[in-house]
């Protein structure tokens, strides 16, 4: 084939592709532009061991009718709650919505290894609640490790759930038995992967010390999203993963195998709760949310078929709505603390 012919052919193929793209684009919905991050008031909260936590407050500043505190997952950051923050503040400007980065994550300070535990995260959450909402009703919510953090808070401070915390949301999370999770793989394969992970993590820590960035890619996407998920969301989550240090990844991994807080859930028996999960979640699979819902008599369980671990991203509007209705349920019971709130 001569050069002109090849060029012509290429042009035709490209042209055809453009036409096909146009045709499909006409039938599809316009892709919404990425939304700006919500306007936030940033501050830091010091933990008992001196770690500076990066905390973001949104919405009503001084006379909020209630405060919602949202905790993110492992290897992630508060940024992944932005969709809910925006929706909640839009729908209820009277709310104060707070997100924060766990120790070692996002813009928060580093943690010592032995403090990289879910138990410690629970204590940190207690500090955050105390700092951002010294009075008024509080609704806490957590995704994945963030949900486990809420359970740790219930374990450490059950009394809070009678006095201060009037509702809790568990999004794509688990109360225990994570050792049995196979990531949707055949059990022996999963076992091998799990055995390999700590070693890979330590290798990444060493590499990072030498200035080599941690590799984030297909594996992370595969773990967090089902096939065919919205590419923009996958990119967003991988960006956040990239910001997480190899040290943090390695430091927090062991805490999951120790996580078993089913008995701690008793503290939550008298506050309204919601449990939300995607049925394609391979990290905290559906049965874990079912078990959670079974243990929480006041919980409402919502399952989103076809959705993976990042249910609050893949089903942004619906998860926001569920949080809003939880706030409604939690605050209409006129808890003591609300009686002093204005309005």
């Amino acid at each position: 084939m001569n050069k002109t012919k090849a060029l012509g052919l290429t042009a035709a193929v490209v042209g055809g592709a453009v036409l096909v793209r146009r045709a499909t684009a006409a039938a599809a919905l316009p892709v919404p532009a990425p939304l700006p991050p919500p306007v936030s008031r940033d501050r830091t909260v010091r933990t008992e061991d001196g770690v500076e936590l990066s905390v973001h407050e949104h919405g009503e500043k001084d006379s909020a009718s209630a405060t919602v505190v949202l905790a993110h997952g492992y290897v992630q950051s508060s940024r992944l709650w932005n969709g809910q923050v925006r929706d909640l503040v839009d729908a209820r400007p009277d709310l104060r919505v707070v997100t924060y980065d766990h120790r070692g994550h996002g813009r928060s300070g580093r943690t010592e290894r032995h403090r990289a535990t879910i138990q410690q995260l629970g204590r940190d959450l207690a500090r955050v609640v105390e700092a951002v909402a010294p009075t008024g009703p509080v609704v806490v919510g957590g995704h994945s490790m963030g949900g486990m953090t809420v359970m740790a808070l219930a374990e450490e401070h059950p009394e809070l759930f009678a006095e201060r915390i009037v509702g809790a949301a568990f999004v794509g999370t688990s109360a225990g038995e994570l050792a049995d999770v196979t990531y949707g793989l055949p059990a022996p394969v999963a076992k091998a992967v799990k055995a390999l992970m700590p070693r890979l993590n330590e290798a990444a820590v060493k590499a990072e010390a030498k200035g080599k960035a941690r590799k984030v890619g297909a594996g992370d996407a595969w773990m967090t999203f089902p096939r065919g998920a919205d590419k923009a969301l996958v990119r967003e989550v991988l960006d956040v993963h990239r910001d997480c240090s190899a040290e943090t990844v390695a430091a927090f991994l062991p805490t999951f195998s120790d996580h078993d807080r089913r008995t701690a859930l008793a503290a939550l028996a008298h506050v309204p709760t919601v449990v939300v999960v995607g049925d394609r979640d391979v990290l905290c699979p559906l049965p874990h949310s079912r078990a959670l819902a079974d243990a929480l008599p006041t919980s409402e369980l919502t399952v989103f078929p076809g959705v993976g671990h990042m249910v609050h991203l893949e089903r942004r509007a619906e998860v926001s709505r569920i949080l809003l209705s939880l706030v409604d349920r939690a605050t209409t019971g006129a808890p003591r603390s609300l009686a002093t709130a204005p309005g």
Partner: peptide, 17 residues
């Protein structure tokens, strides 16, 4: 097409007043 839906199980007990 379950993926177009949310499937829900309500609370077994309504929270005490």
């Amino acid at each position: 097409d379950a993926e177009a839906y949310a499937l829900r199980t309500p609370a077994r007990v309504q929270e005490p007043v």
